[in-house]
């Protein structure tokens, strides 16, 4: 088996006395889509945030591209260029135009040539159908447009791995489809992704594996199709039954 892109071993996370994540073990294969499911408060967001250093953790080992990760601000700053993240709230920088939002990372962090970075940014904007908006400010865009641009902003760094934390959860229903379409295309291009979502039909469609989390424990890791047809745990079955899809 090829080296997995990401391996998480025995990760433990707590806030003070509150234990949030218990003995998390997880392997993400290169080019695969992992969907993280679970009731709210189960620790999905915390887990995904641990994977790019926005949250620290007390113990456990992360291995990215075969290299063990020693958490420190410097290490995370480097790794974040390889691990893109998109949040629930479309969080573009309001003081910058769409293009400047996208180019900030490539130019200032990666010190790439402006012409080349801009060309790529425009190509990415075209792919998400927003090429006409490069000079707009975030305030002039709808939520769905902003979210697609936030995805482009992360992709502009040419990451190997993308984390999506409920990226459609605060969008109007008619905006959701466009954003999911972008994720679907990424999956087809074999981008390695870890997706937290409540869009169950979408999850069933794109998940290579489903990780089911409850109260900070991984209850099961199951291939995508199998999870939705025949989950291993009763708890997951109850969860699936409770979802309307």
């Amino acid at each position: 088996m090829a080296t997995p892109l990401l391996q998480v071993e025995h990760l433990e996370k707590s806030y003070g006395d509150v234990h949030i994540l218990h003995d998390i073990n997880l392997t993400v294969a290169t080019g695969s889509v992992t969907v993280l499911l679970g009731p709210s408060g189960s620790g999905k967001s915390t887990l995904i945030r641990c994977l790019n250093g926005l949250e620290d953790f007390q113990s456990g080992q992360l291995t990215f591209s075969g290299e063990p990760v020693t958490p420190s601000p410097k290490v995370w700053q480097k790794l974040r260029q390889k691990i893109g993240m998109v949040f629930q709230s479309y969080d573009l920088f309001p003081n910058l135009t769409v293009l400047d939002n996208i180019l900030l990372g490539p130019l200032k962090v990666q010190h790439r040539a402006k012409a080349e970075a801009k060309e790529q940014a425009i190509k990415l904007l075209k792919e998400v159908g927003l090429a006409d908006y490069q000079d707009s400010y975030p305030r002039q865009l709808s939520g769905g447009q902003k979210q697609r641009i936030a995805i482009v902003r992360a992709l502009a760094l040419n990451p190997d791995f993308m984390l999506f934390d409920e990226v459609t959860a605060s969008l109007d229903p008619e905006m959701v489809r466009g954003v999911l379409e972008v994720l679907r295309n990424l999956a087809q291009q074999k981008m390695t992704m870890l997706v937290v979502t409540h869009e169950m039909n979408f999850a069933r469609e794109i998940a290579d594996q489903v990780v089911f989390l409850e109260e900070g424990h991984i209850l099961e890791v199951t291939p995508g199709k199998q999870f939705f047809e025949n989950p291993q745990t009763e708890r997951a079955q109850i969860f699936l039954n409770s979802m309307d899809f």
């Binding site: 926005l54 974040r80 893109g84 990372g105 936030a150 760094l157």
Partner: peptide, 14 residues
């Protein structure tokens, strides 16, 4: 906003 700081960190800004 905290999310502004986090999204800045997430694109690798120092």
């Amino acid at each position: 906003a905290k999310i502004q700081v986090e999204s800045g960190l997430a694109i690798g800004l120092s």
